[in-house]
């Protein structure tokens, strides 16, 4: 037996790259504005990361299994619109109270489940390309929400919104709900990716779906589940999003899909699939949110250049990971 025991003490750039980028950002932010590390600002940043973050956790699984979903942003807008519409409609019957909020949440979860399933069926059962399917559903949901809102904005009834608002602004033990939910999703996702057969199967399918098939893995079902899970997580994100402003329009969730994908990749998941890590995605989301936060907190650069700074940092974070296989 010449097997060496599992030990690789050398530090992998792919692991520490995103962490280094995050730490550098935090130090930069703290130096530039003393309020950056205030409890209020940290809470703000984490709460606003929650939407993209919850979605990005689902996206991590989809991408790890070799897929892609471009529809999440408009799916979120559509679900938010649907949720507001249903809650407003039910208001005269149900009145303000917990049941109507639960109804809204159920609508969001089922709509997410259904939308994810639709993507999944088209991709896995009809064998269509994920890029095209989700590009199509992206357009469909985006115009459905415009149609539902009649070109304008759907607003949750004001008193209902006031009742529902604590779901975004409230919290327990000094931590707001979106942060708690985000944390739970991350912990669950990390566990699922790292320690379950499902996570292992996602990585196997993403690295070589033929090998997975020949190893009796239910390739279509696992792929399908990744899309369904992402849909449900979009529903959860929407449940957190709606009470924030109580409205949905065709501008809701614009470009969320790209932010989520960018967060996943910045976090070290391979875009071509086969390898994914949920904690990395969290780092990626935080990096993306912090860039905007720091730029708002300082006058360092012209606001016209915000996009350029964001792009440069995304590229930098990915460059930092390239210690993995030099020269291959």
């Amino acid at each position: 037996m010449t097997i060496a025991t599992l030990s690789s003490p050398k530090i992998k750039m792919s692991v520490i790259g995103p962490i280094v980028a995050l730490v550098v950002l935090i130090i930069m932010g703290a130096l530039m504005n003393p309020n950056f590390l205030s409890a209020g600002n940290i809470s703000n940043v984490l709460s606003r990361s929650a939407f993209i973050g919850i979605i990005a956790v689902g996206m991590t699984f989809v991408i790890t299994a070799g897929g892609l979903d471009l529809s999440v942003g408009s799916m979120a807008a559509f679900i938010a619109g649907l949720m507001i519409l249903v809650m407003n409609t039910a208001l005269p019957v149900m009145g303000i109270g917990i049941p109507i909020v639960l109804l809204g949440m159920a609508v969001a979860l089922f709509a997410g489940l259904f939308a994810g399933m639709l993507n999944g069926v088209l991709i896995t059962r009809l064998g269509m390309d994920a890029f095209i399917v989700t590009l199509g559903s992206m357009g469909i949901y985006r115009s459905l929400v415009t149609w539902l809102a009649d070109g304008g904005t759907l607003s949750l009834d004001f008193s209902l919104r006031t009742f529902y608002q604590p779901v975004y602004y409230g919290g327990t033990l000094g931590v707001s709900w979106p942060i708690i939910v985000f944390a739970l999703v991350v912990i669950g996702g990390e566990l699922l990716m790292r320690s379950t057969a499902f996570g292992r199967h996602c990585a196997a399918i993403g690295s070589n779906d033929q090998v997975a098939r020949y190893s009796s893995v239910r390739v279509a079902r696992v792929r399908m589940l990744t899309y369904v899970m992402l849909g449900v997580l979009v529903g959860i994100a929407t449940i957190m999003y709606v009470p924030r402003l109580g409205s949905a329009s065709s501008a809701t969730g614009l470009l969320w899909e790209l932010e989520a994908i960018a967060a996943v990749i910045v976090g070290g998941t391979a875009l071509k699939g086969g390898f994914g890590r949920v904690w990395g995605t969290v780092i990626g989301v935080l990096i993306l949110t912090l860039i905007g936060n720091i730029l708002n907190l300082t006058d360092l650069v012209s606001p016209y250049l915000n996009g350029a700074i964001q792009g440069a940092i995304i590229i930098l974070a990915v460059v930092l990971q390239r210690g993995r296989k030099p020269g291959q």
Binding site: N33, N35, A251, L254, N296, L297
Partner: peptide
């Protein structure tokens, strides 16, 4: 002065940061 892009979500976040700052 920051760009809120005539968008509710963006201006929410921009304003949060103004308030922190």
């Amino acid at each position: 002065m920051e760009h809120g892009n005539w968008n509710r979500d963006t201006s929410f976040e921009v304003m949060q940061d103004f308030l922190s700052r």
